[in-house]
Design a protein around this nucleic acid. Structure first.
Lengths: 127, 127
DNA sequence: GCCCCATTTTACAAAAGTTTTACAGAACCG
DNA sequence: CGGTTCTGTAAAACTTTTGTAAAATGGGGC
């Protein structure tokens, strides 16, 4: 029965102490409870997690997820980031960093203890 | 005696605390009472039950049961889902989940206790 | 033809999701 | 500091999707 139940572009799942991100099953589990994410929220978080540790510029996020070419001024991205942070609960700030003037970065749970960050160096990332 | 040879698509019957789905006999029993389903209702529920736990996109349902190729806008599926839910009575929402923007999913009776169910759930998936 | 009944369509209401607006607040720069 | 730019946030506005009732359609049997 080729019912094609929800296609799966399989990447190795991301996993740390609190968060399990199953790209194949498009399921995210936080501390054992399934995170209920909308499409856009899922896509946004997935993109960040796939590039864990890297800074992703606002422009890149807006392009990849919204198809917006640069030079569109909108708060949409921020609103979605906010909702993700809300759903990430206590770990919100730890997982999703704001890189002022550049974009955002998903940080694996443990990673932050090694770099006691003052802030973030504006590491460039190709759009 | 069994002149009724085991029909070709005899799948093992689905069964849980309240619902018994006998594919071979095309009979559905809910809390001991036979559910009277029309042909389309039966096909729809059967397809969902056969893939219990999986999300089945609207497009797949419309294709498999109605032969509709995509890009036909119709509320027929929704109407049938509604009638099924009505006949499922109190268990309706528990058995048939709506996955917003994607499709529907039949959930075995017990399964939901693992994921705390607040309400209808928008599990996100890429489109 | 007429009736019955399953099914589909129509039309609108309700719900869920997304974007925009408006402004507060934080970070940067001189 | 004072000005400027950028981000956070809540709430409103908007869009899309689903739910629902009711009417229309269509096929079989009488």
């Amino acid at each position: 029965m080729g019912l094609q139940a929800i296609s799966a572009n399989s990447l190795p799942a991301y996993k740390d102490e609190h968060l399990v991100f199953d790209f194949a099953g498009k399921a995210v589990v936080l501390d054992g409870a399934r995170m209920m994410l909308t499409h856009k929220e899922y896509e946004l978080l997935a993109l960040l997690v796939q590039h864990a540790g890297e800074i992703i510029p606002r422009g890149a996020l807006l392009l990849r997820i919204w198809g917006y070419s640069s030079e569109i001024r909108t708060r949409t991205l921020d609103v979605h980031i906010r909702r993700l942070r809300k759903k990430l609960g206590a770990y919100a700030e730890r997982y999703i960093e704001t890189i002022f003037g550049i974009g955002y970065r998903f940080q694996p749970y443990r990673a932050q203890q090694f770099f006691q960050a003052t802030a973030a160096e504006p590491i460039a990332l190709g759009a």
